[in-house]
Design a protein around this nucleic acid. Structure first.
Lengths: 148, 148
DNA sequence: CTTAGTGCAAAGCTTTTGCACTGCA
DNA sequence: TGCAGTGCAAAAGCTTTGCACTAAG
């Protein structure tokens, strides 16, 4: 997958730098997690203290444009990023469940809304290209202490 | 509705100030729109130049807590607010369609996902209390110029 | 009167940017 | 070697906060 990444960079006329590999590998090692730029920076810093925060920002933006990483913004307004996991070359559709107490974000797969897009497209005149669904609630751990 | 608002404030032990009324009325006059704090401030300033931006921030937070106003955060990370429109005392469920070109945000009503909550609750163990759906695409105006 | 609420300016965050330097191609 | 990419620090948003002042109850 490292080789794939290098090819993707080259095919876009971009340079293969150690910083880019390190950031992608870091996100890759945290699949399923939703990390803030600061968190990514802290993780990267442990092994590569020379890499600056600005590079983290520039690199995750790049990875988003290359569709390798997805930006996730919840109602709290905090920006997080997660590795896009691809199956047979195509990214699967997934959505998020957010714990309102501890902030834990989990993903689940669902394609139930694909057909909805058509209906809404007709109703509104929008040409719909994507959708995102978020559920908010309390996770197993937190729902016990959340009694009100 | 102005009187209702005063009652709501009083019942929460909050003071009825002119600033709070002005902000709510401003949002009320822009039902269906999704305004940033800055935009709200600019509108308010025209008639009430003495009201400061900090008060706008404090007031919209308050209105959110009182469930009179809803915070909307899109993938662009920009925070917007909209008036909550209530029917028969209960806020109806609505979601957003966002134009990726001009940024226009429209709302549409839909309760199709209510039953989904149960299924996902069982699957994940989360106690789900809310959900939000966003569709991204191109609006009527923009889809014509978006040919690629 | 009392103290919640306000206005202003300063501070705090997160993110972006300018610029000299580095290192990939 | 040439120029994209990087590191650092400064700047640029956006939002919150401290404090003296104002006004609601």
């Amino acid at each position: 997958m490292n080789e794939d990444f290098k090819e993707i960079l080259k095919s876009h006329g971009l340079k293969v730098t150690n910083q880019r590999i390190v950031v992608l590998e870091t996100l890759s090692r945290h699949k399923g997690e939703h990390l803030t730029p600061e968190e990514i920076y802290e993780i990267v810093k442990k092994e590569h203290p020379e890499i600056g925060l600005a590079t983290i920002y520039r690199t995750i933006q790049l990875l988003c444009q290359l569709d390798l990483v997805e930006k996730v913004v919840l109602v709290d307004g905090i920006v997080r990023y997660e590795m896009v996991e691809k199956q047979k070359g195509k990214a699967h559709h997934h959505h998020h469940i957010v714990c309102l107490d501890c902030g834990n974000v989990e993903s689940f797969e669902d394609d139930l809304l694909e057909n909805l897009e058509d209906a809404i497209s007709k109703k509104t005149g929008f040409e719909i290209v994507n959708h995102e669904v978020k559920f908010y609630g309390y996770c197993n751990k937190c729902k016990k202490k959340h009694i009100n």
